[in-house]
């Protein structure tokens, strides 16, 4: 998912908790931070360049979108501002009664329900496997798993489109050679959801594997040794040591994966263009199509704002859940 520009990064990004220190240690590190430069302008100097860029290309566009969502801006309005008029909440009203919008929400929901657990389970399993040894072989294997994450989405669409192809694709050849009947990977509305999700999962696991692996490796060995003395190995040591100590990594991966699925765009955009019959049209893609295929920018902006609010709400809810479980 999300490998266009800044998107890329959102696959693994998270609202922060700085470290997993206990509250006490946070206080000490704060004290350490305080230095002679506290009152000067220096810190602003360090932060300002990045901050200004984020304001200009992160915050400002959504603000503009919010304003535009109250207008009927279309291509005539872009050409000539006289053609723009304020229409209040009309776009939002239409959005609520638009069955295509609800359908795209539903489609996104389906992707989330299957996609988030798949990505977490697959990445965690592979990361646990990779962590059992630090031999050269395992380090090489790790690289293989990361490859999809660093590949350009356009290249991915060509490679997978080619493998999925109905006429000369490799996958159908393999299926028929084991006696199974060929599949319309990207043309059957049910199957297309699966095919698109397979590519998204294939691409998203790499970064998450690295994050889990980093977290697993930072668990002190002696915890396991102590547990082994008490007779806890295998599943028990995973259940009682690894899993609890991975909880922040799990939160991180869950939040970022969920955001990425909520913004799901790239794979259906390049593989199916939302089809067949709208079966793979996610919310982002719906908004994009309203905006660019049909030039209804005011309407699309209303969708943008709604999607943004959904993401903020879902994320806040997750963080709250995390806090009530682990406070």
């Amino acid at each position: 998912m999300g490998v266009l520009g800044r998107q890329e990064v959102t696959t693994a990004a998270v609202p922060a908790r700085p470290t997993h220190h206990e509250p006490g240690s946070t206080n000490t590190s704060r004290k350490q931070r305080i230095s002679a430069a506290t009152k000067s302008l220096t810190p602003y100097g360090f932060v300002a360049p990045s901050f200004l860029f984020l304001l200009a290309f992160g915050i400002l566009p959504i603000v503009v979108a919010a304003v535009v969502s109250f207008t009927d801006l279309d291509i005539t309005g872009l050409a000539n501002p006289d053609n723009i008029s304020y229409i209040g909440l009309e776009n939002y009203r239409r959005l609520i009664s638009d069955s295509d919008f609800w359908r795209s929400l539903q489609t996104t929901g389906i992707f989330i329900v299957f996609g988030v657990p798949s990505i977490i389970v697959i990445s965690l399993t592979i990361a646990l496997g990779l962590s059992v040894s630090s031999s050269r072989l395992f380090r090489v294997l790790r690289m293989f798993y990361f490859l999809p994450a660093i590949t350009a989405i356009v290249a991915i669409s060509l490679i997978w489109g080619f493998m999925y192809n109905t006429q000369f694709g490799l996958l159908n050849y393999l299926l028929t050679s084991i006696g199974s009947s060929p599949i319309n990977w990207l043309s059957d509305p049910q199957m297309a959801k699966v095919s698109v999700a397979i590519v998204a999962i294939w691409r998203a696991t790499g970064l998450n594997i690295i994050i889990f692996l980093a977290a697993i490796q930072s668990i002190p060995r002696d915890y396991y040794e102590a547990a082994a003395i008490d007779g806890a190995t295998g599943w028990a040591s995973f259940r009682w040591i690894t899993f609890p100590l991975l909880r922040f990594a799990l939160l991180f991966v869950t939040v970022t994966t969920l955001i990425a699925w909520l913004q799901f765009f790239d794979e259906p955009f390049v593989l199916t263009d939302g089809g067949p019959v709208g079966a793979t049209t996610s919310i982002s893609l719906f908004i994009y199509q309203e905006g660019f295929s049909f030039n209804r920018f005011g309407y699309a902006s209303a969708g943008t704002v709604v999607l943004f609010l959904i993401i903020v709400t879902v994320t806040a809810f997750q963080l709250r859940l995390y806090r009530s479980n682990h406070a």
Binding site: L54, P61, A65, G291, F292, I311
Partner: peptide, 21 residues
């Protein structure tokens, strides 16, 4: 916080404002 908020903004759908900027 504001920095982190930008993670939640769906990028492809704010193309036009960004382009205008």
């Amino acid at each position: 916080l504001l920095v982190l908020t930008t993670l939640m903004i769906p990028v492809q759908v704010t193309l036009i404002p960004t382009y205008l900027i």
